[in-house]
Nucleic acid binder design. Structure first.
Lengths: 210, 210
DNA sequence: TGATAAACGGAACATTGTTCCGTATTTGAA
DNA sequence: TTCAAATACGGAACAATGTTCCGTTTATCA
């Protein structure tokens, strides 16, 4: 059990692993800056690699999009665990919902790609749900048990509700809206979205059966 | 009032008009066959025209898409009037709803383009509604007056309902689903859609307040 | 340190939107 | 009918972008 990979032959070369990570990181940045339709070359250049390198790891452009998306889903879902250990249940729940809200807004460009009919993205909705639903479910259950939230809320319903809330509040274009500031929290629409989210959170905490 | 164009200088050359029509017709065919993402060259070739000619009339690819869409909206809306004069009110209503249903299904590819965030398509939803709503409104009113349909149905509600019905029933890809037959009426999903539509039509005709 | 497999970089290719311009056609008048 | 000007035509050429190929470089291991 010394080797970390079971089954496959050899382990990946160090530079290969480093580059894969650089590409993913660059893609995340570029997608956020120039939208999901940004040229592959731009991503490669940002990552400091040639297109050949990029394509060896991600044979299709859509593979890269999918990988970045999944990676960010993972990160967001992982934050649920972190928050749960670092904060009291109600606070953890509230913080994660904001985190999730930010995720939705910054993925606005992706959303349209998902519904583009390209089969490459068919698996993403499932991935989305199967990661976020349990994450939120745990936060909800813990908060309910601690008496810090009502217990009659379905995790998936809440995910969808906030998803709708957030995507309605953000500007519609694919190209990453305003260039004024980098922080999505300071977009006008975002403020409104947060107010609505606070309303929901209050409802969760102080509603009936609390 | 002898000249048909008021304000502009001269009238368009005969070959120009002929070509514009050929391009629109070709685009309609190609979009239906290969999807809205079909190459401009393919459309030009189908129309028997050079790309230069196509681009003089439609400076952007999206202009052509918009033009085709509007043209088909016009055609569908115009059919409402034709049907109204050729058939008794209830029959006209019923026939047009099927016609509209077919329109929706064959425009499935367009639907995703509309929601792509491209500002070129921003005006289309309005165009859609402002043409179809009055058309259906007239049919509904006539049928209601003749006692052949209930009178408490909102035209726009019905348009949306059937729109949802039809787009749910058709295959999801952009590329025009099965190559088996050309007739959309014979796709499996279409049969189901028609059955649901019949249910609605029956409801319209024999429901309360008939 | 050297052999070898793996990975790298980026030039080259294919596809597609769009522009340009020399040539052909239509139009209106002599 | 004939001719000149205006208009439109066709398609080569350009630009942007996804993808492939291959000669060169680098990591790994003995």
């Amino acid at each position: 059990m010394q080797e970390e990979n079971t089954g496959t032959k050899k382990r990946i070369r160090a530079d290969a692993a480093r580059n894969e990570d650089a590409v993913l990181e660059a893609a995340k940045t570029v997608f956020a800056t120039s939208g999901v339709d940004a040229p592959v070359r731009e991503i490669a250049k940002t990552a400091g690699v040639g297109v050949g390198t990029l394509y060896r790891r991600f044979p299709k452009r859509s593979d890269l999009v999918v990988a970045v998306f999944k990676r960010e889903v993972d990160a967001c879902a992982a934050d649920a665990k972190t928050l749960a250990t670092d904060h009291p249940p109600g606070e953890a729940l509230s913080r994660w919902l904001r985190r999730y809200c930010r995720f939705i807004v910054t993925k606005k460009g992706l959303a349209s790609a998902l519904h583009s009919g390209d089969p490459a993205f068919d698996a993403l909705p499932d991935y989305f749900r199967s990661n976020f639903e349990p994450a939120l479910q745990n936060l909800l259950a813990a908060a309910a048990e601690a008496g810090e939230a009502r217990s009659d809320i379905d995790a998936y319903d809440l995910l969808r509700a906030i998803g709708n809330l957030a995507s309605a509040g953000s500007t519609s274009g694919g190209k990453a809206g305003g260039n004024a500031g980098d922080d999505p929290d300071h977009h006008e629409g975002m403020q409104h979205t947060y107010r609505m989210l606070d309303l929901m959170i209050d409802g969760l905490r102080y509603g009936k059966s609390g």
